[in-house]
Amino acid sequence: MIRKLSIYRGHGETGRFETFEVDLGPQATLLDALEYLRNGTVSDLVYRHSCHHGSCGTCSVRINGHEKLACLTPLESLYAGETDDDPIVPVIEPLLAFEPVADLAVDPGRLFRSIPERITHVRESEWINGKPVAPQKDSPTVHPSGIDRYERFEDCIECGSCVSACPVTARDWSAGFGSAVVKLEDGSPALMPLPDTPPFMGPAALAALHRETINKSERREELLALAAQPGGVDSCERHFECSRVCPRGVAPGKHIELLRREIREHKEA
């Protein structure tokens, strides 16, 4: 099946959209389409990818303005409702907020630097027999191998989708400092740059931070203090785009709300 894609090429002032054709089967994903191009006529196409099954978090891009993992996006799903008179050409762009590398690739470094150091990536499993259950800390069943718990990697795959979709990180990270939306005298909203305030940590970092208060209760106080700093939870404007775009259902917006409440309760206590 021949399909057309409009893909961002280059970076900075030299960036532009180019339209390419791919010819793939009905099962192909958007990542397959990018691989098709790179192994064919566009050998210098730059994009990130690794696991091809939504575990590594490298291949997040914006498709028609929405953050998605290319490897889990069926190519055909992008052409739903297409007619002969009204052909669809999906627009593929790199994530916002991050420093561009080239074409669809961004440098994810900022995301990893925004997450406090020594955050655990593996924790006790809450999935037994395909169903979520509460952790069984005092389970009387001793595992015959001697392990004392089942473990599972964290759900967040650090793909950066939430950071790109969040209107606050999208503007703070490119500017390099904080900002706030204020009301002008006539009541209309305006953006006020705050050059002395650090940029918003972003939804991924705050979600990781909140998870860690659960995984490592002894770090709770220190982590809540981090979240309460300028650029922490107070910078969140509750757009909830982060929770909407998360491909793993991590719901960073929920974590941020929980952090706010816990910080409040902590202060009162």
């Binding site: 994009y47 690794s50 590594c56």
Partner: peptide
Amino acid sequence: RGELTSGTTGRHHG
């Protein structure tokens, strides 16, 4: 030439 681990490493069974 690509992203790190974009060949066989990332795509293994795990």
